[in-house]
């Protein structure tokens, strides 16, 4: 937050009446209440035997969490599934970081033919509805033997996010003064070493934002998993939760909420400890 902004807000606050302030807060609270209530219900319900009037826990129990230690009909082992989800999230983050930091560097620091067009293409791809080309993607994955494999989903998910990530990280590269690179060159570094030893450490904040967001992007992936994964060996928590939802919707909220709370654990951690990043991650939220 810049000094000017701070001044502005203070200025507005001093001059607006109390009634105005109360109205704004009241409006925000009312508008946001479905979100607060829904998430509160999710957590409370997962630890309670039932809900009186739908919202007041009737008693503490851990039996909703039985999926962690016993077999639930129709669902595979949750630890195995969670491990897969971890792999998916981590790999998507890894692939996106690698590819976007390389291409962002090339687009920011080199002048070459077709650069402008490529930048525009990336912008366009970012908005392009690839999910509507699922039939053709199925064909491509079949040709490359990437169906029913996490690798296929990792590459797909990463490809969907790379245009965005490249743009973001290019912005970070652009913000580094050329002089720093020249200094590196004078020290006798090659361009690649300059990139690795000088530039990458400087764009670290951007890389962290991308890593966090891409981990969550892979962690949450649903459509590609449910369409291109056939055996439960490669299930992730999205398919696990979706399957539970199919069998127990309206029937066993206890089990469903417990599974959900388990699934959104990384989101919760992020929400509590890295509040600041969340706002930055709105960058990532651009993919609607």
């Amino acid at each position: 937050m810049t000094k000017g902004e701070y001044y502005k807000i203070g200025f507005l606050q001093r001059n607006s009446s109390k009634i105005f302030n109360v109205t704004v807060y009241a409006l925000l609270i009312v508008l946001s209440s479905p979100i607060v209530l829904a998430y509160a219900w999710l957590f409370l319900r997962s630890f309670s035997t039932g809900m009186a009037h739908g919202f007041i826990p009737t008693g503490l129990t851990f039996s909703n969490w039985r999926f962690m230690w016993e077999q639930i009909s129709g669902l595979p082992n949750v630890w195995h599934v969670t491990f897969n989800t971890f792999i998916l999230g981590g790999s998507v983050a890894g692939v996106v970081l690698l590819v976007s930091s390389m291409s962002g560097f090339a687009l920011s620091r080199f002048a070459f033919k077709g650069q402008g067009k490529l930048l525009l293409l990336l912008l366009m791809l970012h908005a392009f509805p690839t999910v509507s080309l699922m039939v053709a993607i199925f064909y491509i994955l079949r040709m490359t033997h990437l169906l029913n494999s996490l690798l296929g989903v990792i590459l797909l998910r990463a490809s969907m996010d790379i245009p965005w990530a490249t743009w973001i990280i290019k912005g970070f590269y652009d913000g580094i003064p050329r002089e720093i690179e020249w200094a590196g060159a004078i020290d006798g570094y090659s361009r690649i070493s300059i990139w690795r030893k000088v530039l990458l450490p400087m764009v670290k904040p951007g890389l962290i934002v991308i890593a966090v967001f891409e981990f969550l992007s892979g962690w949450s992936e649903f459509i590609f998993i449910t369409t291109f994964i056939f055996s439960n060996k490669w299930w992730t928590l999205s398919q696990y939760t979706y399957t539970a939802l199919g069998g127990y919707r309206f029937a066993d909220y206890g089990l469903l909420t417990a599974i959900s709370v388990w699934y959104i654990l990384p989101v919760t951690i992020l929400f509590i400890f890295a509040n600041k990043y969340m706002t930055q991650m709105s960058l990532g939220g651009i993919k609607g």
């Binding site: 994955l141 449910t226 399957t243």
Partner: peptide, 25 residues
């Protein structure tokens, strides 16, 4: 014996079978 028992709905299962067989699972 490996495999799965599906409880989501019919069309989810059929999707898995048709695509699974098609892709040589």
């Amino acid at each position: 014996v490996k495999g799965f028992f599906d409880t989501v709905n019919w069309s989810d299962y059929l999707k898995k079978v048709v695509f699974g067989l098609q892709s040589g699972q």
